[in-house]
């Protein structure tokens, strides 16, 4: 199919709301020819009763927005972002708001952070606001998420913590550390997961959660977090603290895959504490663990 050239927004919109599906496709696949002026009319058509027209309008909005983020089209992107920012508020239909947040998550920048942050407190749309902010890699977004963590209801806190972990925000670590001692297991686990992923040295040793009360799955997750945290600390030049984390794992479990991972980690540190710890494990009930110790000590 040869691409049609559109000379005006109206001509484009006419094709988007055509009864013929092929004509609609021919139009929305050329949405790149449009600029931000097409957005208001396309948004209106998202509410069409005709599913094909609503879909063509949505596809056109997505294609136009994606094209605005191409290298060298900065001016258009800023205008497109401006149009979407007008559509995140409560007066807009919910499907439009959701699309706005999702596209801003891909093409938004520091200019949108402040306003989007206010929606972290709106129960209906907070998840979309969160998805959006977690993609914008500047520190004001981290600051907004940390503030929301302090002021949000408990049921939303694990999501906020996960977002901070996903972003690997160093500045969140002190706040996250406080949640490690939470009596709410879900919160404590979420905080540990985020801290491990960020991998910045905490001010104090990682406290144990109420380990015996965790499910087997959560126990595994916690031990994995300690190992991931140790690996990150080691990479960032904190061998003593990494060793402490590996030793915590060895202290808590006999499971061979965890023991082997911790021993291999300790072998990279190779200080007297690490060597001594490995030697004391030499009579471990698992042959595989003993074998790994033998190999790393021989090396």
């Amino acid at each position: 199919m040869n691409a049609k050239t559109y000379n005006s927004v109206d001509e484009f919109i006419n094709d988007i709301q055509n009864d013929n599906a092929d004509t609609r496709y021919a139009a929305w696949s050329q949405a790149k020819q449009m600029n931000e002026e097409a957005i208001p009319k396309l948004v209106e058509l998202m509410g069409s009763d005709h599913p094909g027209i609503a879909q063509a309008a949505t596809n056109a909005l997505q294609a136009l927005t994606h094209s605005s983020a191409e290298w060298g089209r900065e001016e258009l992107r800023l205008k497109v972002v401006g149009e979407w920012m007008k559509r995140i508020g409560e007066s807009n239909p919910s499907n439009v708001r959701v699309l706005a947040f999702r596209l801003l998550a891909k093409v938004g920048d520091e200019r949108v952070v402040s306003e989007i942050s206010t929606y972290l407190y709106s129960p209906y749309i907070r998840e979309e606001a969160l998805f959006c902010l977690q993609n914008i890699s500047i520190s004001t977004a981290a600051t907004a998420l940390i503030a929301a963590l302090r002021n949000s209801p408990d049921d939303f806190k694990p999501r906020l913590i996960a977002a901070l972990g996903y972003r690997r925000d160093d500045e969140a670590v002190d706040t996250l550390y406080d949640y490690l001692s939470s009596s709410d297991t879900e919160l404590a686990m979420a905080a540990m997961h985020a801290i491990a992923r960020i991998g910045k040295l905490c001010k104090k040793t990682i406290p144990w959660p109420n380990y015996a009360r965790l499910s087997s799955h959560d126990q595994n997750r916690f031990l994995n977090c300690l190992i991931e945290y140790a690996e990150n600390l080691l990479q960032k030049g904190h061998p003593e603290e990494a060793a402490r984390s590996y030793l915590q794992v060895l202290d808590k479990t006999n499971e061979e895959h965890f023991c082997c991972a911790a021993i291999l980690g300790l072998s990279k540190i190779n200080n007297p504490i690490a060597v001594q710890a490995m030697k004391t494990m030499a009579s471990h009930p698992s042959y595989k663990v003993r074998d790994v110790i033998k190999k790393v000590l021989n090396e």
Binding site: S216, H217, N220, R221, L223, N224, E255, E256, H257, F258
Partner: peptide, 9 residues
């Protein structure tokens, strides 16, 4: 699921 399975050994 793969990551969780590896963590479970």
């Amino acid at each position: 699921m793969t990551v969780h399975a590896c963590e479970a050994g």
